[in-house]
Design a protein around this nucleic acid. Structure first.
Length: 555
RNA sequence: GGUCCAUUGGAGAAGCGGCUUAACUCACAUGCCUUUCACGCAUGCAUUCAUGGGUUCGAAUCCCGUAUGGAUCACCA
């Protein structure tokens, strides 16, 4: 018997597929011309990273806009780093941002599609089938080097100033004959399986990256590990097998993968399989002490997508931002088509920048303010409630107390051409509206009211008493404000700021100062939305009570 | 140390050899509007495209070197 077959049979004694069977089992997809098959392939090692969401968003977008397929594959081949339950949470967070796969992993023990399993730990038989064939072809071999052997090798390479790695003369086990390998295995020596590279580091290969264009890189000469001693494949090998048999057409992934591209190229060529198109995405960066660095989950709150969900940034605003950094023509497109859905935007690789954008919170905030400002009352109240149910108990309770009242509050100066934009995220709501609720109003009141120090207590009392006697919330806003002016004049203030400026000596201040007194009494704040609406919502009885109380405490 | 990628204002960027006295958006500043805030409006913010050479009548745009920043070199993905 052929010695390579013998070796392969020794290593893999179980029943496996032939390559032909696999090809038949996972046939070419029947899709329209030009359809992209893309994927998002996260490891279940924690929560969704902002950069991952960015990549997932782009992958899915290309599949959707080309009537192709977008799927999720779980890359759980590193059991040491795996965090239980994080796979499912990845999927649900993606969904929270409107990224839904057509097929693939949807949660633990839950998947759909004909190209599965979509969880790598469940694909061992497929990987082994391919490797077995590679051993038979002498494209893969067992390696018995220990961790110590490898580090000794590395040390030597370091001293000689040679490239690191398992290649050429350093690839000791590649020199073993099949007979020797068989003997070692029979002796029970532990091993991994390596790919036998035939590349030469001194040769250059040319690759076309969909984003970066023509790239010239050294050919791979590394005999990389393809099957670890735990029987699971490494990323490189899993990428080859999975993306071939899942018929992925476009690999969109972070640029940190660029250096290993030669490995993947050689792998595909060794198998004689058609290479997918690669698109290496720029990585989102952050400015740290004047230097750019990758957004880091450890150091940056905003690196975890959950942060934005918890804070209540509107998903739509956040996605708008991700689109603006994904494609440089997006902002102009948005400007031209203000009301179109992002689905209508045609994303392209050549409008992607090559270096990573700095993550710009201020811009996100602006976009989110814009989104929240332009929601109608119903939409806003509903979204706020949905958010509060999940993330803010106190706001939830207030909304549930009286949904209509809450709606009225957030409707102030909304649904007009240039609406107020005081919220950038849902968590901004509560502190700004607390004073509308009597119990919160009472508990906020404890500290002394912050009236203008230049006004005497007597003046303030007089203003309050005069106003209390005269004001009427049934008037139009204009008439209501006219009353405010009358009160101002009666109490020694100018009716307009202009008048006051002309002759400061003659007045205590102007209407603005009078309004400020009322504002502080009614809202406990120096700034508020239009006082007329605020008072109308709170209602005459309670405004009366607040004013009377204030007078009382001043006396 | 090797390899690869990048470099236009505080940020995202347009620009692809003369139309650029470098578009647009965000941030920032000032002013106007205004009872506060927010909104809105107006104006300002790169004499210059990392840097040094070269090509050209002409360069942010083409070529070469240098610098700086980033990524990567695992039985991690």
């Amino acid at each position: 018997m052929n010695k390579y077959v013998e070796l392969a049979n020794l290593i893999f004694q179980e029943d496996l597929y032939s390559i032909e069977e696999l090809e038949a089992k996972y046939p070419k997809r029947d899709l329209p011309v030009g359809a992209y098959v893309t994927r998002f392939a996260p490891s279940p090692t924690g929560f969704l990273h902002t950069g991952s969401l960015f990549a997932a968003l782009i992958s899915s977008k290309f599949a959707y806009q080309s009537y192709g397929v977008f799927f999720i594959r779980l890359e759980d081949t590193d059991q040491k780093r795996e965090i239980a339950g994080s796979g499912a949470s990845l999927v649900s967070q993606l969904a929270a941002f409107g990224v839904y796969p057509h097929e693939g992993y949807l949660g633990d023990n839950l998947e759909k599609g004909n190209y599965g399993p979509y969880v790598q730990s469940k694909r061992a038989k497929i990987y082994k089938s391919v490797i077995k064939q590679m051993i038979i072809n002498n494209q893969a071999y067992p390696c018995f080097c220990s961790a110590d052997d490898l580090s000794a090798m590395r040390k030597q390479q370091d001293e000689r100033k040679e490239n690191f790695g398992y290649y050429g003369e350093y690839a000791k086990c590649s020199k073993l004959s099949p007979e020797e390998a068989i003997e070692k295995i029979k002796n029970g020596e532990p091993y991994v399986l390596r790919f036998r590279s035939t590349g030469d580091y001194h040769n250059k290969i040319v690759v076309n990256d969909a984003i970066r264009g023509r790239i010239e890189i050294a050919q791979n000469d590394q005999h990389i590990v393809i099957l670890k001693s735990d029987g699971l494949p490494t990323y490189h090998f899993a990428h080859l097998v999975d993306d071939h048999f899942m018929r992925t057409t476009h690999i969109t992934r972070g640029e940190e993968w660029l250096p290993s591209l030669p490995v993947h190229i050689e792998l595909f060529e060794a198998m004689g399989w058609q290479k997918p198109t690669y698109a290496h995405l720029p990585v989102i960066m952050k400015l740290d002490n004047g230097n750019r660095r990758k957004l880091s989950k450890r150091k940056d709150l905003e690196a975890a997508v959950s942060y934005f969900l918890e804070q209540g940034y509107p998903v739509d605003g956040f996605l708008e931002y991700l689109f603006t950094i994904a494609n440089s023509n997006f902002e102009a497109w948005r400007d031209e088509f203000k009301d179109l859905s992002r689905d209508e935007f045609k994303m392209s690789f050549d409008k992607m920048s090559l270096d990573g954008a700095l993550f710009d919170l201020a811009k996100i905030q602006n976009l989110c303010k814009e989104k929240l400002g332009h929601m109608n009352t119903k939409e806003f109240a509903n979204s706020a409630y949905t958010w509060a149910k999940e993330y803010n108990e106190e706001l939830k309770a207030l909304i549930e107390r009286d949904y209509d009242y809450f709606s009225q509050i957030v409707s102030i100066e909304r649904e007009k051409e240039n609406p107020r934009k005081d919220y950038e995220k849902f968590s901004d709501i509560l502190p700004l509206i607390k004073f509308f609720y009597d119990d919160h109003y009472e508990s906020m009141k404890q500290d002394a009211l912050l009236f203008n120090e230049n006004l005497s207590k007597e003046t303030i009392i007089k203003v309050l008493e005069t106003y209390l006697a005269k004001y009427d919330l049934n008037l139009t806003e204009e008439d209501w404000f006219a009353v405010m002016k009358e009160v101002a004049v009666e109490c020694g203030f100018a009716a307009t700021p202009k008048e006051f400026k002309k002759n400061k000596e003659a007045f205590l201040g102007h209407v603005g100062d009078v309004a400020a007194i009322l504002r502080i009494v009614v809202t406990l704040r120096m700034q508020s939305p239009n006082l007329y609406y605020v008072m109308k919502i709170i209602g005459k009885d309670r405004v009366d009570a607040r004013i009377k109380n204030a007078i009382e405490s001043l006396k």
